[in-house]
């Protein structure tokens, strides 16, 4: 009874209403996107948005049509996201391990410096990177994109894994050293198994960031290496916006990552807040 009463207290109801209101506000664009995807182009263009209409799959059919190349872009997205995540983790683990368990005077500086590179707007380095890529022939190349994504995500990945490692007692490393483990054995057999949840959530975050990335994909690729954001943008043409088809394309593009995020959200929250509270 008392638990029931508590559940419906004034403050809780107020917080509930507020929570729903904020959620609605945040998800409105997504709802709009989803609704528009089921409209015809004519319905999507009306100035007063139509709330009631006959849903149609025409836009999806058009978006998945042979010429649109959905599967080509989707494959590029999957491949670049996965590859940059795997390569990123392989670089992250030793870097974070060294900084967490063998810190030097410059460790703190290095961490801050790495994150500070994220403060530079991507446009600021677009021209030099574009020219370098043009010279070495990495324009419109998936590996060029993977290299960019890996570099883009490394600072936050290292920072996350570092904070995970930092929460593992140093005594364990020392115990393993005394037990006769080499540095590699200590990392593989003692530390990594303990950090698996952290590595998983770091990997997930990198995957999502790489998947959502549009700036570099649009600027550095033409078709061969283009990912889904390019595909979505292709529905904006000189003749005008195809809102319904673009919405359908967007739904098709974000669906996989939303499904993945849904399953992984618990892991994600734990990963991002890990170490915040003892």
């Amino acid at each position: 009874m008392s638990a029931q009463a508590k559940r419906f207290s004034g403050a809780n109801i107020a917080f509930g209403v507020l929570g729903w209101a904020v959620a609605l506000l945040m998800f409105l664009p997504l709802i709009w996107l989803l609704v528009t995807a089921f409209k015809t182009e004519a319905e999507a263009f009306t100035v007063t948005p139509q709330l009631f209409f006959e849903p149609t799959l025409d836009s999806f059919k058009a978006a998945l049509a042979q010429g649109a190349g959905y599967w080509h872009y989707a494959w590029n997205s999957v491949f670049t996201a996965l590859a940059s995540t795997v390569i990123g983790l392989m670089l992250t683990v030793p870097a974070a391990y060294a900084m967490a368990f063998y810190p030097s005077k410059r460790t703190d500086f290095t961490l801050v410096w790495m994150v500070s590179t994220k403060f530079i707007p991507a446009v600021g380095v677009l021209v030099p990177i574009f020219l370098v890529y043009k010279t070495i022939g990495l324009l419109d190349n998936v590996w060029g994109l993977i290299a960019l994504y890996t570099a883009m995500n490394l600072p936050i990945m290292i920072w996350m894994v570092y904070s995970y490692f930092r929460d593992i007692p140093k005594d364990l490393v020392e115990a393993a050293n005394i037990d006769g483990a080499s540095m590699g054995q200590t990392m593989l057999k003692v530390i990594l198994p303990l950090a698996t949840p952290g590595l998983a959530s770091t990997g997930l975050l990198a995957l999502i960031l790489a998947w959502n990335e549009s700036f570099w994909s649009i600027t550095m690729t033409n078709y061969q290496a283009s990912t889904l954001p390019v595909y979505i943008a292709s529905f904006k043409s000189a003749e005008g916006m195809f809102w319904a088809k673009m919405s359908a394309a967007s739904v098709l593009s974000i669906a996989p990552i939303i499904v993945l995020g849904w399953f992984a959200q618990r892991q994600m929250v734990r990963g991002l807040t890990f170490g915040a509270v003892k």
């Binding site: 005594d171 020392e174 115990a175």
Partner: peptide
């Protein structure tokens, strides 16, 4: 040598 730590430092997994 073998060492016993104050925190025990047992491998949790």
């Amino acid at each position: 040598i073998a060492m016993v730590f104050q925190s025990y430092a047992l491998y949790p997994h």
